[in-house]
Design a protein around this nucleic acid. Sequence first.
DNA 1: TCGCCTGTACCAACCGGTCGGTACATAATC
DNA 2: GATTATGTACCGACCGGTTGGTACAGGCGA
Lengths: 206, 206
Amino acid sequence: MRPTLKTEKPTRDHILAAASRLMALRGYRATSLVDVLRESGVGKGNFYYYFRSKEELGYAILERVVQGFVERVLEPCFSDSGAKPLDKVRCFLDRLLETQRQRNCVGGCPMGNLASELSDMHEGFRRRLAEIFTVWRERMTDTLREAQADGSLRSECDPASLAHFLVAALEGAILLTKVTKDIQIMETCVGELKSHLTLYAAVGRS
Amino acid sequence: MRPTLKTEKPTRDHILAAASRLMALRGYRATSLVDVLRESGVGKGNFYYYFRSKEELGYAILERVVQGFVERVLEPCFSDSGAKPLDKVRCFLDRLLETQRQRNCVGGCPMGNLASELSDMHEGFRRRLAEIFTVWRERMTDTLREAQADGSLRSECDPASLAHFLVAALEGAILLTKVTKDIQIMETCVGELKSHLTLYAAVGRS
DNA sequence: TCGCCTGTACCAACCGGTCGGTACATAATC
DNA sequence: GATTATGTACCGACCGGTTGGTACAGGCGA
């Protein structure tokens, strides 16, 4: 029984990793505790040492998924201070396309899946997910505002509306990619979204 | 017990209606047979007279949902022979917006919900759903081709790509509307999609 | 007689959560 | 120093309830 540092909880993280893998494919309800325990190799009593309930596990998974998304997708694209704002948005589109390609069109978007499954049935999840999408969208909105400030996006464009649309269209593209198992759908939609940006691009300043 | 025509099965339809209501909100897995029986008032033995399994019920519900969608949304918009092709597309966008408004942003899209929940776990459902989205998209593609033929859509537009994009963006918009419970998201996205159409519109011929 | 329908008992598997217990390290007490 | 108390981590059996499905006797009306 090894001593652990105050902030490290390997067993808890191990459970979370295993549960995240399962829930990404199966969704919340179809992921049972027994499955999680089997996948993680942890005993049931021990599970309840770390999580009070399946719901609490679900919330923790959601946080973990979001953190991973922010670190691996949002931050690399939007924190590149050398890039022009619209290039950041394109980088984001391309990054999501590559993610779906690497996953062979399996899994879709974990946040979108949970939103679809739980929004009408579980208010706690709906609220958290709505907040997550808000953060995602605001990050996009800020960048679009920068593009307006630097003149590459016209002033009649509403950054918030455009950001809403980009997020929604991406979620839909990911869902259709998942159901058809055809990466071309995602490619097509990313292409159309880039074209959509040209609607509002200031001439010669993209 | 009134005599019924050979093609009418009131009890079966009654079960389907009840199950559709439940499944539209809860999804497939979270809709139990006991719930369906309670909602429909039909006995269990009788249920199995009409359906061999929960899966068969699910397939029947899907067909029913699709039929309703075709009759109430697709056909009214796309079969209006007096309308211009691009007006048909706009009618479709508006109809979906009104549907979400009437439902107070509850439920989302039944087909999208099932696609999200089951595409990676149940090949039978994934195949059927992929086919449904294909039909939906082809209807849109045909209309966009008509728009090209009548000159209101430019020849460099690819109708199939645009149709893919429209369907995907709508699904995403519906999903975000469901998670945020804010009809404005849907309004915004429908507006952006109409703007997107202008990308390809021939000048003065919309 | 047949199709439709009822009610109900039963089944094994599943489900999230509870419980009594073990192992061990460390601190406190006598 | 030995004993006791405490806290952390862990375990699997057990619990009551739920689930989709099976089986079946029987009723009803055309």
